[in-house]
């Protein structure tokens, strides 16, 4: 087991007037894949957004340590530079900006913040081609405006491509499987598996067990009403599928 890359301690967060996360504790070491499961409205996506730094949510108690650093002090772009990546549940379309311009801007923005020299166009193209190859993505995607007119599957695949290009230390996948057919799901999962490394961790947020057939997690956490009520190995996900969230909730309540 590696060093804890992400440590969430007694995290309370929400929007004004409504607490959504009510004391989340979670430790994710480098090199591992953790799945976060839970029924609709349990706070899964809120946790993803709080990690990425969306302004709509406020942390009212507890803290998030990312590689020992308090995330609350960092703006979203600084979190990206620190090595955090969020794959969106609903990736945004950006007509007018090509994938190439977008990723070049992103990669160089991150490098600049880290004090690394920006990549020249040739080096950048090489890097993006390698990233595309790694996740089996057509590099022609780079010529098209970001996500514009993409199918659900293409958008999710593009998220994984961005992930490969930005090479973060922690990738949070927010319901990456939602809206995907089984073929698209396999392609996305294959891309994620190709990016697993001893110094990188994944937090895979999902409602359904089926994604975990393809991305096999080290640990499964169950989030119910803003708290992690149970953690276990991957068999926990199978139990959930068989018995439903309600049963697990009851057991946890006992």
């Amino acid at each position: 087991m590696g060093e804890p890359l992400l440590q969430i301690e007694d995290l309370h967060a929400g929007i004004p007037g409504r607490e959504i996360l009510r004391g989340v504790n979670l430790t994710l070491p480098a090199g591992q894949v953790h799945a976060l499961m839970g029924p609709n409205g349990s706070g899964k996506s809120t946790l993803a957004q709080v990690l990425a730094g969306r302004e709509d949510y406020t942390i009212t108690q507890g803290r998030i340590l990312f590689a020992g650093q308090d995330l609350a002090a960092l703006k979203p772009h600084e979190r990206a530079a620190a090595g955090l990546f969020l794959a969106f549940q609903y990736p945004v379309e950006i007509p007018g900006v090509t994938g190439m311009q977008f990723l070049r801007a992103a990669v160089n923005a991150v490098r600049k913040q880290r004090g690394e020299p920006e990549l020249d166009p040739v080096a950048m193209l090489k890097r993006l081609r390698e990233a595309a190859k790694l996740v089996d993505c057509n590099p022609d995607t780079l010529k098209r405006p970001v996500n514009e007119g993409f199918s659900g599957g293409e958008k999710k695949r593009n998220e994984v491509f961005q992930l490969a290009a930005l090479a973060p230390r922690l990738a949070v996948l927010d319901e990456t499987d939602s809206g995907l057919d089984i073929d698209a799901l396999q392609v996305v999962a294959k891309g994620v598996n190709a990016l697993r490394r001893p110094d990188r961790a994944f937090l895979v947020i999902t409602h359904y067990q089926r994604l975990l057939n393809y991305i096999v997690p080290d640990v499964v956490h169950v989030l119910v009403e803003g708290r992690i009520v149970k953690s276990g190995d991957r068999t926990l996900a199978l139990d959930l599928e068989r018995e439903g969230y309600a049963a697990v909730e009851e057991k946890a309540a006992v």
Partner: peptide
């Protein structure tokens, strides 16, 4: 939403 998307990819606001 798009501005936020770009921020999460490393661009300052």
């Amino acid at each position: 939403e798009a501005v936020y998307y770009l921020q999460t990819r490393g661009l300052p606001l």
